[in-house]
Each structure stands twice: as C-alpha cells, then as structure tokens.
C-alpha cells in the first residue's frame, strides 16, 4: 500500500443481517484508532452509496441471494485490490443458504416466496400476490457464497466473528503481515 496516503476501506452487506458490521463495531474503542488510520469509502457506516475512488480493501458481509448482491459484489471486485469475506454468509452462504436444501421440494424458491407472502399463517397481504415491483431484484436459484461469484482474497470465519479476530486480521492485512489464523484463535462450540 502507498505509504503517503491512508488505506481506503469499503464495506458492504450483501445478503447479510448486519451482524458482521456490528461485529466490526465490537472492536470498541479501537474504532477510534482505526478511523484515524484508514479512510472509509463506500460503506453503510459512511452512507456513501457508490465508490468515490478505487479502494485497497473491500470487506464483504453476506452471500449472494439476489442479482443485486451479485452486481454489487462484482462492483466491489473491480474497485478493490483485496476482498475480505467477513462471516459465514460471505464465506459459504451462511444461514440464508438453508433455503438451498429444502428437501422434497421441486421449487424451493417458489415455496419460500409463497410461504412468506401468501400462505403463511399470520400474513396480512391484501394484494394476495408475491411482491413484484421492478425495483425488487430477482432472486438467484440458490444462495451462492461470494467465492463462487468472484475471487476472494481473505476470509474471517464466524457468525459473527468476534471483534478481536476482526481487528487483528484487519490490522495484519493493512500492515501486510497476515499469515493466516493461529489454531487457538478459533473455538467452535
């Protein structure tokens, strides 16, 4: 990275629940130091909705559930040198990918939409239709992890990862000295 300017970081939540962004905030007071060390570009944290410049690091939360996620992810790949997949949704599809494995169903997508908007027990849907405004992005046939759509450089596992691992990994990557996770930094209960 260029020493004479601050590294630029962009973040996005694709089909994520924002839990991993909250986990970024879990670095607590270290956030102050981080904000002095880097510039945030496109991110929900800055409410910048498009890239203003090319970024060094892109942090991706969430996998790809719809075409807009794919579009945004491809945009991130083209505008960032390094992409970090943060959390299980970005790494392997995460919890939303449970839609992929609905057993004994020929049309899992249609079933999910119908259950949510038409046949569900406590639904009040006066149109009796599945919402279909052109502004709504089309859903993908299944949920894809980010690495199937673009090349991903790093992954931080967890649902959500703890603040410490996020801070350590991000700091190492920024300093160019990330060499993978130590064995005892991950405990899966």
């Amino acid at each position: 990275m260029n020493e004479t300017r601050k590294p630029r970081v962009a973040t996005v939540s694709l089909a994520g629940c924002f839990g991993c962004h909250m986990a970024i905030l879990d670095i607590d007071e270290r956030l102050v130091g981080l904000m002095q060390a880097v510039e945030f570009d496109r991110s929900p944290l800055t409410d910048l909705k498009t890239f203003t410049r090319r970024c060094d690091i892109g942090i991706i939360e969430g996998g790809c559930c719809n075409e807009e996620n794919v579009h945004v992810l491809q945009d991130f790949r083209r505008n960032c040198d390094v992409l970090i997949a943060l959390g299980q949704c970005a790494i392997m599809g995460g919890l939303p990918a449970m839609r992929n494995a609905i057993m004994q169903s020929d049309a899992p997508l249609r079933e999910c939409l119908e259950e949510a908007y038409i046949t569900g027990a406590y639904i009040r849907n006066t149109t009796h239709q599945i919402p279909n405004d052109p502004a709504l992005p089309l859903l993908l046939d299944r949920v894809y992890p980010c690495s199937e759509v673009v090349e991903i450089d790093y992954q931080i596992p967890g649902c959500a990862p703890g603040g410490d691992i996020i801070f350590e990994t991000l700091s190492s990557i920024l300093a160019g000295r990330f060499h993978g996770f130590s064995r005892d930094s991950f405990k899966f209960d």
């Binding site: 997508l109 089309l138 046939d141 759509v149």
Partner: peptide, 18 residues
C-alpha cells in the same frame, strides 16, 4: 470475476416466477 458463475441461468427461475 468468476466465469463459472452464470448469472443468467441463476435468475432464470425468478424471471419465470416474476
């Protein structure tokens, strides 16, 4: 960007439903 990901066929089902 991965050439193995075919967005057209991925949205085909949704195109039909919508």
């Amino acid at each position: 960007v991965r050439a193995s990901f075919d967005v057209q066929s991925a949205i085909e089902g949704a195109r039909r439903i919508a």
